[in-house]
Amino acid sequence: MKTYKTARESKVSITELMLPSHSNFGGKVHGGYILNLMDQIAFACASKHSQCYCVTASVNRVNFLNPIDVGELVTLKASINYTGKTSMVVGVRVESENITTGKKKHCNSSYFTMVAKDEKGKNIPIPGLLIQDEQGIRRFARSKQRKEEAFSRDTQFDESKFKAEEHLELLKKENLKIVLK
């Protein structure tokens, strides 16, 4: 196994025609179906980079920017943005294309943290990321910052350390009623 690999070496893309069976009650492609495809391509990309089985540890922010219509082609692109010791962040971009007009829409971008596992389910080391351009540096730095912010959010609101009175002023402007017992 290589010590370092470029994002290009693990890059994966798939294109699929959206069928009526993929639609929701509103006649658009169901978001859950798109999430399933995103998870599959993140797995393929992470497994290609690590050369082993990977599992999804977390998904950072899924925003559905534009609806996808039945009959459109959906292309998902995935690449490694960040590598830790046993985990990696896979950036996934979703675009749709109207096959009659050729018009393309950016529908979603998300970040999947994937962890490499051995045959016994233990975390195993992965190759680092070999960055060769400024975009790679930007993606790596952004992923690292996202990880640090998530850790900070998790620890800030840890139940054993949380003090409700520190947040009451902020909550006064929200659509809620607090009745403490």
Score class of each variant (00 low, 15 high):
51 Q>T: 14
52 C>V: 13
53 Y>K: 13
53 Y>H: 15
54 C>W: 01
55 V>A: 14
55 V>I: 14
55 V>H: 03
55 V>F: 08
55 V>N: 11
56 T>Q: 08
56 T>K: 02
57 A>G: 13
57 A>P: 01
58 S>M: 08
59 V>K: 00
61 R>V: 11
62 V>L: 14
63 N>R: 07
63 N>H: 11
63 N>C: 10
64 F>K: 02
64 F>N: 03
66 N>M: 12
67 P>W: 01
67 P>C: 10
68 I>P: 08
69 D>M: 10
70 V>D: 05
70 V>H: 04
70 V>P: 02
71 G>Q: 08
72 E>D: 14
72 E>H: 05
73 L>V: 11
73 L>S: 14
73 L>P: 00
74 V>W: 01
74 V>T: 07
75 T>Q: 13
76 L>R: 06
76 L>Y: 02
76 L>F: 06
77 K>H: 10
77 K>W: 01
77 K>S: 12
78 A>W: 01
79 S>D: 08
79 S>V: 04
80 I>V: 15
80 I>L: 13
80 I>T: 06
81 N>D: 10
82 Y>I: 07
82 Y>T: 04
83 T>D: 01
83 T>H: 09
84 G>K: 00
84 G>Q: 02
84 G>V: 11
84 G>I: 10
85 K>Y: 12
86 T>P: 00
86 T>G: 06
87 S>E: 08
88 M>V: 02
88 M>E: 01
89 V>K: 04
89 V>P: 06
89 V>A: 12
90 V>K: 05
91 G>C: 10
91 G>L: 08
92 V>G: 09
93 R>M: 13
93 R>P: 06
94 V>P: 06
95 E>S: 10
96 S>E: 08
96 S>Y: 03
96 S>D: 12
97 E>A: 05
97 E>T: 03
98 N>V: 11
99 I>G: 09
99 I>R: 02
99 I>Q: 04
99 I>L: 14
99 I>S: 11
100 T>C: 15
100 T>K: 10
100 T>I: 15
101 T>R: 07
102 G>R: 06
